[in-house]
Design a protein around this nucleic acid. Sequence first.
DNA 1: TAGTGGTCTAGACCACTTA
DNA 2: AAGTGGTCTAGACCACTAG
Lengths: 248, 248
Amino acid sequence: MREKSLIAIDRNSYEPVYAQLVNILRQQIGAGVFRPGDQLPSEAQLCQRYEVSPMTVRRAINILADQDVVITAQGRGTFVKPLELASAAFDLKELQDLFSNADTQVQILEARIGSADERVARKLSIPEGSRTIYLRRQLSWGPQPILYHRAHLIYDPSRPLVESEMEVTSLQGLFDGQCQTGLKKGELTIEVTVLTEKEAQFLQSSAGTPAFRIEHLFYDFDDQPISWGWFICPGHRLQFTTTVGIPD
Amino acid sequence: MREKSLIAIDRNSYEPVYAQLVNILRQQIGAGVFRPGDQLPSEAQLCQRYEVSPMTVRRAINILADQDVVITAQGRGTFVKPLELASAAFDLKELQDLFSNADTQVQILEARIGSADERVARKLSIPEGSRTIYLRRQLSWGPQPILYHRAHLIYDPSRPLVESEMEVTSLQGLFDGQCQTGLKKGELTIEVTVLTEKEAQFLQSSAGTPAFRIEHLFYDFDDQPISWGWFICPGHRLQFTTTVGIPD
DNA sequence: TAGTGGTCTAGACCACTTA
DNA sequence: AAGTGGTCTAGACCACTAG
């Protein structure tokens, strides 16, 4: 009996069987053997053809489904998913790369205790006039400032988090998750804006320059807002890229 | 023998066992029972405590690991992952919502055959002077234009894709994956810019307004670039949001 | 050496779709 | 009724880490 394909699972490979199967199917879809909308062989057929157990086939297909490469429909089959622009996702790894660069340094421009105005009080769910810490930081690449950060933190001496947030290094820790442990979740928004006069001054740029504005609101494990602020980064220093569909 | 927790798996629930276990562990992590950096009970312990098989525990933990909630280390254990800003990802669902809205309509402003200049030829990997289709479209919400799209397509009568790309509806199909089937992958970039005079005119806005610029380059299944273009959207009409850490 | 996660099996039973 | 994917079992063996 002839196999349809010469490709087979290498039982001696360091690459797990399920991963090999993911790659085989991915490659076939990428090569156009299976086109968007086409039905993949059933799990039982894949078990036979590649001589693996149902659970292993299952695992491979689940991974492809997670990656939006295929879509499964109970009782009908597994189908190749067409490229979907809306599923494109941009992450902040590009920003993290700035921090891991040896030439970048974080600098605190201002750190003072103040009281919450109406806007800050609303964002942090605290009474107006409560004590807060106002923080301004700047991230530079050599002599060139590239990121400007402002944040309002709840001032509560009983919470050690505040101290650690003020550490110069904590800004990096926020990105790579190395330092802090007191944050439960954060809500992020990315917007476009143009630099104000003041922002332009700090970033050694000119007012009216287009820039990303990344707003953040962090919560602790009691679901209390604890830190509200935003990053400003001129657009010509930053862009986010991603791929959608079947990458090589 | 006393159980540490009263929470148990409901075998009669419509919710699968592995999903229940994901939620239980998620909830405990969110409530601070396990803090970032803490080690989770071992898989064997979880099997005992919740009376499920190893594979089911495994599945639940894999899901949490996929979601960046925990991190597993062979030979050491499973640990709660601290919040990591860099893992935040913004998707284009907000844009898709524009299309699914009944009040939005797509309008072709221009569609003509031209020849590729140096820049277009380079992007599409074709000889300078090759025939291309230049397309300008506009997406409006009622009387209000909100998105301006320009694209250069390779003109090749033997490829039916071109026709379908010109369909008014295909712009929506691009986002939700309903229409097209000939695209293998797309490379996307998101940048900030300010509206030019001409763009401002089409978008009934003023020059200098900050805007998102989403550039796209699509490839067919022969890995040939097939379409290069970009969307312009004034910033005050669009923002991208996401959550990082343990959402509620 | 003991404990951990990582992989894999060879089925079972169920829910769903289509004819 | 036949075929599909969805869930789950009760182990097995392996690779890795730590004391």
